[in-house]
Design a protein around this nucleic acid. Sequence first.
RNA 1: UCCUCGAUAGCUCAACGGUAGAGCAACCGGCUGUUAACCGGUAGGUUGUAGGUUCGAAUCCUACUCGGGGAGCCA
Length: 429
Amino acid sequence: MEWVLVKNLKDHVGSEVELRGWVYNQRASGKIRFIILRDGTGTVQCVLVKAENPGLFEKAADLTQESSVILTGSIREEPRSPSGVEITLNSFIIIGRADPYPITLKEHGVDFLSENRHLWIRTPRQSAILRIRSTAEQACREFLHGRDFVLADSPIITPAACEGTSTLFEISYHEEKAYLSQSGQLYNEATAMALNRIFCFGPTFRAEKSKTRRHLMEFWMLEAEAAFFEFEDNLKLQEELVFHLVRTVLDRHSQDLRLLNRDIEKLEAVSLPFPRVSYTDALKLLISEGHQIQWGEDFGAPQETAISEKYQSPVFITHFPAGIKAFYMEPDPANPEVILGADMLAPEGYGEIIGGSQRISDPDLLRKKIAEHNLPVDTFSWYLDLRRYGTVPHSGFGLGIERTVAWLCGIEHVREAIPFPRTLYRMYP
RNA sequence: UCCUCGAUAGCUCAACGGUAGAGCAACCGGCUGUUAACCGGUAGGUUGUAGGUUCGAAUCCUACUCGGGGAGCCA
C-alpha cells in the first residue's frame, strides 16, 4: 500500500493509503472515535466507528497524544473537515506509545514551552513557522544563485573581532584564544575579490546581554558581497531579494500563514521600490514628533519603530553619520560625515532586518579608519591586502533570517523563528 | 550592566494576614459526528530557596536563585 504524506492526501481521494505519524489528539464517544494524526506535513482526522470494527475501536483507546503510529485508511472528501478530506481508519499499529504528553492542547506559558522546545516544535503553529523559515532560506539561495552569486561559506572560528564593536564569545583554540564569528563580512570581501559576487549563510554569534524579542545569542545571517557594486546597486539587490522572499512565502505558504493568523494583506502590500529616507531627514521627522535625539546619535528601537510604521514596505534609512557605523563603510563623497550605507527596517515594528554598505576601497583611508577606531592594525593586515592587490568598489549586506521570518510570520518573538533558540538565560534544550 | 514584572498541583491560574482551590492533563465511568468535544467521579501540594516580622505567612519585609518583558548594543 502506498505511503502518503498528509499534505498530499487530496491527490489520493477514494483510495486506501498508509499514513505514518503521531497522534495529535483523540476524541471519543461510546460509538465513534476521532483520531487526529499529524505527520509533520499537516494533520488529518481519522474516524473509527465501533459498530464497523469493534476490536480496532477498543485497541484505539491506547492511542495517547503523540504516540507514533502507522495506519491504513480510505481517503474521502468530507465537507465538515477543515482540510476537506478525512480518513476512515482500517488498521493501525502503534510504534511507540507515548507517556502523558507535557504539551497539551491548552494554553502554556513561555517558560514552560521554552523548557520543552524539543516538544513544542511539534505543535502546528511552530511547525508552520519552521516550514516558512525553510522556504525563506531556500528563496534567499534561489534568488542569489539566479543573480550569479556564488556560495562561499565564511569561517565560524575567528582570531579576532570582525567589527570590533560587539561582545564576542571566546573559545579556547588549543592554546590560543579564539572567537565565534559575529559576521562573515570581512571574509566575504576576500571571496568577492576572488569570485566576484558571493554570499555566505550560516550561524553568527553575539555575546551582548541583549534580552528582547528581537535578540538571540546565536542567529543565522545571509551575507552577500559583490565586487564593483556601488551603493545604489546594493540597495536595489536588497530590496529585490526581500521582495522575492515576501512573494515566495505568500505563494507557497498561504495555509501556514492562515494557521498563524498572519494578516496577509500587510505582506501583499509590500511593493518595489522600497521607500528610502536619509538619516538626517528621518532625524528631523523624529524631532518634529517629539523624540529627544540629536544628529550623530544612533536610533533606538522606539525610533526605528516610529519610522517603519509610516510605510507599508520595508524602509531604507540611508547615509548614517560615520561615527555610529562600522569602520569599513565608505564615506559619501558628497558629504564625508555620512556613509554610503543603509539599514532596512521591516514594517510593523519588527526592527532592522538588513544592515549594509559600500565598503572602503582606498587602502590609506581604510588604514586611517582602523586607527581611528583603535583597532589592532596587524589583525587586519590580510584585510588591507584586499586593497593593495587590485582594489575595487564593492558593497554588501547582512540579512538576519530570524527577524525576517518573525516579520513574515507575524509572530511576537524571534525565538520562535529558529528550531532551538539561544537566548540570554537559556540554552536548554 | 540597568529598569521592570513574575515564581502556588504535570500545565494555566485563583486564594491578598486566619483550614491552599478551580479548569485542563492523568486514572475510572458515560455518551453516534467531535473540532482545545462534552458529562460524572478519583487521585494529585514542604506555595522557588534561606532568613525575618506575627498568636498565625502563599500573602508583609530582606537576601538569594531562576525566568519573562524592556533599555543600551545589534541582525
